[in-house]
Design a protein around this nucleic acid. Structure first.
Length: 471
RNA sequence: CGUGGGGUAGAGCAGCCUGGUAGCUCGUUUGGCUCAUAACCAAAAGGUCGUUGGUUCAAAUCCAACCCCCACAACCA
């Protein structure tokens, strides 16, 4: 039995869960359930990223203590994950005391690769942030939001020396020891790696208060990278515990927007700690609303909870795991979602279950004793390569094939002609086919797969409520 | 000259690596069936494969140039 450790990116809790977060969770959950189906032991991490100036600011806006604010929002995300029916085993909050302590220990252990340097740049007092040379030029040195000139400011930061690890990371990615998925991102990451500068990993406490203190330096607070990325191992108990049972992770899931941090900074940290690199880094695309990026200013943001409430979590998972390409950007529209529900879930699968169950019931066909066949190689190959939307397509072909087969074999006319032997043989074949499909559906639609297996065990009865009711 | 992806039937995509009658799903039209959630099955219509040039007996597929979309990034966690 293999031990499989999977991770999801931890969302920054200054906003509500959106559809992008759901992708992380759903993909990781499919992977987890697939491995369980294969008989592996699985640990699936999730969590929330809760430090930083923005959080503090938001809390203040809402007149809440920071702790109160993050408690509330972390809870919102936890509820959301539960709603997605994601079977996680570990949950980490970056404000957990144990996480902070472990982070500081990790920092200490990385000391050989950390140095302090001065950073100088244009700063807007109003925005409380540095801006790039280019942005400064474009705005003619005056902040458009605050109508104040930018100031040249200097501050001290700690930096992580990426150069110490560059060659080893390059080798790991290039050789495939640490897979970057999709494959077409690999080139991109390798190029980025070549020119990746050392990364700033702290801020002066004057600028950032809400965060983990840098050990042995009261003037500095850890910047996001150290704090957030470390969660993947602090949650396993590192450094007190030996984590080799679970580490290296089998796969780490995230959006393409944060791929670079996971493919460069994170491996650098791991190598600095003497830990192995994850086997795979899987980055998914973005969800577009009718071809456009979702954004608050356009007002086209689709609330995932609303989508779930429409037809239930199984329909949600169906759409986002099959019709959203695992690796490329994909589109969501309500019309497509409704079509998929009605044409595919209800008409293809729901109706297939209904007609087979009715046929079996009317002709007194009992539970089939034979166990379902092994998962087909085409399917496992796709699953092993994280090609989930394609694997789902493959499973669906079998659904459609079964509908065709019923029409070809016409069990109802066999019944009419009293050919009971032939009828039983035909029905057994069809039901076994459906059970095979339901097995392939387990990672994607766990509830539906279980319902199908229930319906076709013991006395076969069509369900009182169809699997996917319409109208 | 930032980096990456893409432009193929009304829509969404596959095919391109390994050149040789252009394929899938949805939608549309017609027919069939009756076990089923007016569900299912079959057939048909529908494309100068972004543009231009090149290589070749032959290019959606290889090469070159150009046009157009999109995402990510540029120390905002």
């Amino acid at each position: 039995m293999n031990k499989v450790y999977l991770t999801t990116a931890i969302p920054y809790v200054n906003g509500m869960p959106h559809i992008g977060h759901a992708m992380d969770y759903c993909l990781a959950d499919v992977c987890a359930r697939y491995h369980k189906l294969l008989g592996d032991e699985v640990r699936l991490q999730a969590g929330t990223d809760e430090h930083g100036g923005k959080i503090a600011q938001k809390a203040e806006e809402q007149n809440l203590a920071v702790e109160e604010y993050v408690d509330k929002n972390s809870g919102v995300f936890r509820d959301f994950i539960a709603k997605l029916n994601v079977d996680y085993t570990d949950f980490v909050r970056t404000t957990d005391e144990w996480h902070e302590k472990r982070c500081q220990e990790i920092w200490r252990r990385l000391k050989n690769h950390i140095y302090k340097a001065e950073y100088e740049g244009w700063y807007c007092v109003g925005c409380e942030r540095y801006i790039t040379e280019k942005e400064c030029e474009e705005n003619h040195g005056i902040c458009p939001d605050h109508q104040k000139p930018y100031e040249k400011l200097k501050e001290e930061n700690y930096y992580l020396r990426i150069a110490d690890f560059r060659e080893r990371i390059f080798e790991a990615i290039d050789s495939g020891k640490m897979k970057i998925l999709p494959e077409f991102r690999k080139k991109e990451v390798l190029r980025l790696l070549e020119e990746s500068p050392d990364v700033s990993i702290s801020r002066p406490i004057s600028q950032l208060k809400w965060g983990v203190r840098v050990p042995d330096d009261d003037s500095q607070v850890m910047y996001v990278w150290m704090d957030a990325l470390a969660n993947y191992i602090t949650v396993l108990g590192y450094p007190e515990k030996d984590i080799t049972e679970w580490w290296p992770a089998t796969a780490q899931f995230m959006g393409k927007d944060v791929l670079r941090f996971h493919a460069i900074i994170w491996p650098a940290m791991l190598l600095g700690l003497g830990l192995e690199l994850p086997r795979a880094i899987v980055s998914h695309g973005m969800i577009l609303a009718d071809g456009q990026k979702m954004s608050k200013s356009i007002g086209n943001v689709v609330n995932p909870v609303e989508v779930i409430d429409k037809h239930g979590i199984e329909a949600f998972r169906y759409y986002f795991l099959r019709h959203v390409d695992t690796f490329n950007d994909s589109d969501f529209t309500w019309e497509k979602f409704e079509n998929a529900y009605s044409n595919e879930l209800a008409n293809d699968l729901g109706n297939l279950v209904q007609r087979l169950a009715t046929l079996a019931h009317k002709n007194k066909i009992k539970e089939i004793k034979q166990a379902p066949s092994k998962l087909p190689k085409e399917y496992t190959d796709l699953m092993d390569n994280y090609e989930y939307s394609k694997a789902f397509d493959y499973a669906w072909e079998s659904v459609q094939m079964l509908n065709r087969k019923i029409d070809e074999e016409k069990p109802w006319s066999l019944a009419k002609n009293g050919e009971s032997l032939k009828l039983e043989e035909c029905m057994n074949g069809l039901i076994l086919g459906l059970l095979d499909v339901s097995k392939m559906l387990v990672p994607f639609l766990p509830i539906t797969a279980e319902r199908i297996q229930d319906i076709f065990s013991g006395e076969i009865m069509p369900p009182e409520v169809p699997l996917f009711p319409k109208g």
